[in-house]
Design a protein around this nucleic acid. Structure first.
Length: 441
RNA sequence: GGAGGCGUCGCCUAGUCCGGUCUAUGGCGCCGCACUGCUAAUGCGGUUUGGGUUCAUCCCCAUCGCGAGUUCAAAUCUCGCCGCCUCCGCCA
């Protein structure tokens, strides 16, 4: 949620942000009115409640006196007070209901408002991103004299990926990582966590099932809701990223400024329904319902958020650089930001068989948006106030595996292991098809 | 899953049986001031969070795990829920 003071002092700022996102602006007008009404109702309640309390406090001592020396006069006085208080109690109750209703209305309206966009984010839809830089050169397979195979073909050849059995067991967009595939994921996990720790991140293994409050607080029950798995029998959600548990980790807490920034590297399975994506990326493991990911998550002073965002991007680049994968960096357009993000940078890796760059990481500055919803605050000499949260992908397993397999493949179907990864694979320099022992395909 | 106990303003704690004297006690910690060669000690004051109002101070409302109820009045009584602990059962 956005600072309510902005709504009261300059609602046009919020309208403009909504316009840039291509989202509803009428909700802002409704909110302006509802906010005023809610405060009016609250004031009515406060005043009534005050007189009720004042009245009530007179009754106690009088009853004490009455007990000591009963008199009809005193009794009458008490009865009168009781009657007035009784009437007042009914008024108070009515006022409270009104005030609560209005407050809830305001709250619900706020849930429909996305974060204020960073004015540097390019305005427009998915295709209107700004290209920030291109790093590395895609291999010239023609010059090398062979046609590159797609990641699934290579993965199957190496007995590293099994999508057929994934579909048999769990349906489409599920897969097994087997042998080299599984070991590759473990190696990537360890490389990612090693890098994260050097950069001051605390490794975390997080819950993958969360309460509605965590899901809503991070902003995933808005437009993104259709991609979230809900476990109806227990009213819980499967997270699409460990950003959710990591953001909710400090909810309802006040963190001393001296402890900031707090950097966490979360490891969890991620679940996505991919509801709006039927027909897209139907083969292989580029778009799947379940995958594992190392996610960076930072709590920091809002004044440091921009600089931290740059750092997160740099750490993402460091990781892709270490894997020797060509990529480009884009500044995501306003229409393609999640509802919590003010600004977002994506790294897109070169995928040879598609002849294009595909998203492998994403880092968002969510400013105070999630912190306000989740009530995470910081305290320094200037008092208590919301802090900023940021997130960034360090390693989303399937897509990184895709990029490694395709970019480092050899004509014989083997795959070179990037030097940085070799220590985490027991020194292995090349993945080759294993001798057939168990039933493979 | 069953039985019992517990949940108070950073931490510990009084209060809950028997509703009003709670504006929630005291200690520790922390902040400010005073005193003192320095430090320590001592004294005085302050110290939950959110909202409203105000130039500001003041003041007002809510907040004793969460929600509902009883009542003129709830930390205190009733009901539901959540969490933690102990024991039992089951179990990776």
């Amino acid at each position: 949620m956005i600072d309510p003071q902005i709504l009261r002092n300059d609602p046009e700022v919020i309208r403009e942000s909504q316009r840039r996102r291509g989202e509803d602006t009428q909700v802002v007008d409704l909110l302006v009115a509802a906010d005023i009404a809610a405060r009016d109702e609250q004031r009515v309640f406060d005043e009534l409640r005050n007189s009720q309390k004042t009245l009530s406090k007179e009754i106690g001592p009088l009853q004490g006196q009455l007990k000591k020396n009963p008199s009809p006069e005193l009794q009458q006085q008490v009865d009168q007070l009781m009657e007035r208080a009784s009437n007042l109690a009914a008024e108070v109750k009515a006022a409270e209901i009104k005030a609560d209703d209005k407050a809830r209305e305001v709250e619900n309206l706020w849930l429909q408002v996305s974060n204020l966009v960073d004015l540097r984010s390019p305005v427009g839809g998915e295709e209107d991103f700004t290209l920030l830089e291109t790093v590395g050169t895609p291999r010239d397979f023609a010059a090398e004299g062979f046609e590159p195979k797609d990641h699934l073909t290579i993965g199957q050849g190496l007995k590293a990926i099994d999508t057929e059995r994934g579909a048999k067991v769990s349906g489409s967009r599920f897969y097994f990582l087997t042998g080299h595939g599984a070991m590759l994921e473990f190696a990537l996990l360890n490389l990612a966590m090693a890098q994260a720790q050097v950069n001051g991140f605390i490794p975390m293994i997080t819950p993958a099932l969360v309460l509605p409050s965590a899901m809503e607080g991070t902003g995933f029950l808005g437009q993104a809701a259709e991609n979230v798995y809900r476990v109806e029998s227990d009213d819980m959600y499967l997270v699409g990223t460990s950003e959710v548990p990591l953001a909710a980790y400090h909810s309802d807490e006040i963190i001393p400024a001296s402890q900031l920034p707090l950097r966490y590297a979360g490891w969890s399975s991620c679940f996505r329904r991919e509801a709006g994506a039927s027909g897209r990326d139907t083969t292989g493991i580029i778009r799947v319902h379940q995958f594992d990911k190392v996610e960076m998550f930072v709590y920091c002073d809002p004044a440091d958020a921009q600089a931290e965002h740059e750092r997160l991007l740099q750490w993402e680049k460091d990781f892709i650089n270490a894997l020797e994968i060509p990529y480009r960096v884009i500044d995501v357009a306003t229409g393609d930001l999640g509802s919590s993000a003010a600004r977002k940078f994506d790294i897109e890796a070169w995928i040879p068989t598609q002849g294009k760059y595909r998203e492998v990481t994403s880092t968002s500055n969510t400013t105070e948006f999630q912190a306000r919803r989740l009530k995470v605050r910081m305290r320094d000499d200037n008092g208590t106030r919301p802090l900023a949260t940021l997130n960034g992908t360090l390693c989303a397993m399937p897509r990184i595996i895709v990029a490694i397999l395709e970019n480092h493949q050899n004509s014989d179907g083997s795959v070179n292991v990037p030097a940085a990864l070799q220590p985490f694979l027991g020194g292995l320099t090349k993945l080759t098809a294993p001798a057939t022992k168990s039933a493979g395909k």
